[in-house]
Computed example of a mutant assay.
Amino acid sequence: MDTLAIVILNYNGQSFLAKFLPTVLANAEGYPVYVADSASTDGSVAFVRTHFSAVRLIELPRNEGYAGGYNMALEHIQTHYGGATYYVLPNSDIEVTPGWLDPVMKLLDANPQIAACQPKILSYAERELFEHAGAAGGYVDWLGYVFCRGRVFATFESDQGQYNDNQEIFWATGACLFIRAELFHRVGGFDASFFAHMEEIDLCWRLKRLGYEIWACGQSTVYHVGGGTLHKSNPHKTYLNYRNSLFMLYKNWPADGWLWGKFLLRLILDGVSSLLFLKVGQWRDVLAIIRAHFSFYGRLPHLHRQRKALLKQQKAEVPLYPHSIVWDYFIKGKKTFEAIVETSEK
């Protein structure tokens, strides 16, 4: 069994593999590097086989997105390569840096309660700024809206070393997720029905319910292009984000008697966001939000069964940020993580 497996999921990302895979291999510190290809049609498999003989190539039979793709790939590694103690799952559009692995590995080794961890995620294009997907560690507010140290909605902080510490967080980004392999498989991996987006938050939430911790490691840094497979302007991304948010919340929200009241507020706020899309002429995004809601309603029986099972397994309470970041950000003008935390502490 390897100590660490570096596993890159690829779908039609040959250009990213050409650009970033050499850096991953140069900084793999002797650990095996896998590329799991989700039935790409752009020649990715032949390209890796021809140019990167050191890579262990896994050819998946179909594209099941981030969630299903990684589930299949990591099961394959466990079955055919003897598994690993830890997995790290960098996106194909991640540029790693020298020494990126060691600080995270030391943090995981020192505390067996840490189930998953992430490095700092900075923007590849604007390298002094934190990147949207995870920044320096993620949180969830009481209405289920997600935000990060270093990134709140469309405000991106400059990296001034303010998040160079190691810090317990709520969720670690799937853009570069370190996770204990045994725990990943024990909880069933990612929820494949998510396909892509927010599956890592759902997974982290489930792990925290079992009493494990999620951390950010401020001594490790990577750079993320973002939108490599599905651009942020694509209405299908809007659909997945809204739908998966509702999936995740119904499954995981605490059994505090406020479930449907909070859902009603979310539906109202989703309606407000639809008006904002409509205002700028993005009617396809409005249709995507409507589709997302109907998909959620159609899947409620299955989600309810998942929720009941998770409540039976729960061993620890999982506190959310107790206020609304929508209110803090848009009404109170609190644009940074530190300003929002100060608000919470008053």
Rank of each mutant, 00 (worst) to 15 (best):
I8H: 02
Y11C: 02
N12W: 08
A18P: 05
F20C: 01
P22A: 03
P22Y: 05
A26Q: 14
A26N: 13
N27I: 00
N27Y: 08
Y31G: 01
P32M: 07
Y34M: 06
Y34H: 04
V35S: 03
D37C: 06
D42G: 11
G43S: 08
R49T: 04
F52I: 10
L57Y: 07
E59T: 12
R62H: 10
E64Q: 14
G68E: 00
E75F: 05
H76A: 12
Q78F: 13
T79N: 13
T79P: 03
H80M: 14
H80I: 08
G83C: 15
Y86W: 11
V88T: 15
S92A: 14
D93C: 10
D93P: 15
I94E: 00
V96C: 11
T97S: 15
W100Q: 13
L107R: 09
N111G: 10
P112W: 07
Q118F: 12
I121H: 07
I121G: 01
E128Y: 09
F130S: 08
G137E: 06
Y139W: 10
Y139F: 14
V140D: 01
L143Y: 09
V146R: 06
F147T: 08
G150F: 06
R151S: 07
V152C: 15
E157L: 09
G161I: 01
G161E: 06
N164Y: 07
D165P: 01
N166G: 00
N166S: 09
Q167L: 13
G174N: 03
C176M: 15
I179C: 12
A181T: 06
F184H: 03
D191E: 11
D191T: 07
S193Y: 02
F194W: 04
L207K: 00
R209N: 11
Y212L: 10
I214F: 03
C217I: 10
G218D: 02
Q219S: 15
V222P: 10
V225H: 10
G227R: 05
L230S: 00
L230R: 05
K232H: 10
N234V: 13
R243M: 14
L246I: 02
L249T: 07
L249P: 13
L249I: 12
Y250S: 12
K251L: 06
A255G: 06
G257H: 03
W258Q: 11
K262A: 05
F263I: 09
L264D: 04
L265A: 07
L267M: 08
L267F: 09
L269M: 06
L269D: 01
D270A: 10
S274L: 05
L276T: 00
L278K: 09
L278D: 00
K279H: 11
V280H: 13
W283S: 09
W283M: 12
R284D: 12
I289R: 07
I290K: 14
R291M: 12
A292P: 08
S295L: 04
S295K: 13
Y297Q: 11
L303I: 01
H304D: 12
Q306V: 07
R307V: 08
A309Q: 14
K312R: 14
Q313R: 14
Q313M: 13
Q314W: 11
K315S: 09
K315T: 02
Y321W: 10
H323P: 00
W327I: 04
W327M: 05
Y329V: 14
I331V: 11
G333R: 09
G333V: 05
K334W: 07
F337M: 03
F337C: 06
E338N: 05
E338H: 02
A339M: 13
A339Y: 00
V341W: 00
V341G: 02
E345L: 15
